[in-house]
Simulated assay, not measured.
Amino acid sequence: MAAGEDRAPGRVGVVGLGVMGGGMAHRLLAQGTPVVVWNRGADKAAPLAAAGAEVAATPAALAARVDTVLVSLADQAAVESVLFGPDGVLGALAPGGVVLNTSTVAPAFARALAERLAGTGHRILDACLLGNGQHAKDGELRFMVGGEPEVYERVEPLLASLGKEVRLVGGHGQGATLKLLLNMLMGIEMQALAEAVVLGQQAGLAPESVLQAIAASGFSSPVMRFKCGVMGRRAFERADFRLALMHKDLGLVRAEAQALGVPLAATDGAHAVLTEGLRRGLGELDCAAVLTVLEGMVGEPEPAP
């Protein structure tokens, strides 16, 4: 199929069907939006096909049939491959098509993507999001968008169908920056919560008592209250936000801070413990599994940042 053939107006492509990408695809279908999906593993596409999505064989085949492509992938290497690699999106997306990169990436990477697309006729926004898989399915996400205002205006109705809050926060890379700042806070919160539980436990308090007290206190955020429940149930296997991804994001934060000369002692400490979690093979668990990392480190030397 040649690029641009049989492209239905308003048809949206979703590349990457993990927790967030799959949730957004389900939400679009529920809203009556025609959706084309692609995922490296075909198993995640099957439920969406049953719900009415068209499944493309490659990212290029998807891009040839849509006007807007939502990209939801784990890291920058995956984004690079899907956009620019063989059978990539940008080899088939028609001029005027828009890429919405919802993946968490470095601000410099987001700016570099925009520079590479300049003059190609394609447009891109860093459309970073906050929320979990259920938020994605329910249209309760929050979008922080970086890029050109005129492109943002074109896609704002689409994003509004996926989220309860959609904001243009600045130019290319600024959406990625704000997303990293918020993920930094979450990573530090998880570290602080786990430290409180483990210290309390070593001092003779029952972990459930510590978690209940924190969840009911004014010191707790909505995320912390939710993760108090995850830690209390030790429900780490079904990951809303994998420990490996939190490690990746805090690594991006640290790199940005180093480039700007900003010291981040709390982030450095949290990143070191997450590094230890990866060493112990816990990367696929929920980031709240930092609790088990700290439990295993009791009596051991602290890891270097």
Results as ranks from 00 to 15, higher is better:
Gln174Glu: 09
Asn132Trp: 13
Leu130Lys: 06
Gln174Ser: 07
Ile214Glu: 07
Phe226Lys: 15
Ala255Gly: 10
Val166Met: 05
Leu211Asn: 01
Gly85Cys: 04
Glu5Leu: 11
Pro149Thr: 13
Thr104Asn: 09
Ala60Arg: 00
Leu243Arg: 00
Ser161Thr: 15
Ala266Pro: 07
Asp138Met: 15
Gly119Asp: 08
Ala259Phe: 01
Val69Pro: 12
Arg238Leu: 09
Glu276Arg: 14
Asp286Ala: 09
Leu158Gln: 13
Thr58His: 10
Ala235Ile: 14
Ala272Trp: 05
Ala64Tyr: 03
Arg154Tyr: 15
Leu168Gly: 11
Leu141Cys: 09
Ala127Glu: 00
Arg238Gln: 13
Val293Gln: 06
Ala92Gln: 04
His122Lys: 14
Val166His: 00
Gln202Leu: 09
Leu285Asn: 05
Val71Trp: 03
Arg225Val: 01
Ser81Glu: 12
Gly13Phe: 12
Met1Trp: 01
Val66Phe: 04
Val37Met: 02
Arg242Glu: 11
Pro207Trp: 11
Gln202His: 07
Thr104Glu: 04
Cys228Val: 08
Lys179Thr: 00
Leu260Gln: 11
Val35Phe: 03
Val82Ser: 06
Lys137Gly: 13
Glu189Asp: 10
Ser209His: 12
Val197Glu: 03
Lys248Arg: 08
Ala8Gly: 15
Arg40Met: 02
Leu245Ser: 07
Glu5Tyr: 08
Ala108Glu: 12
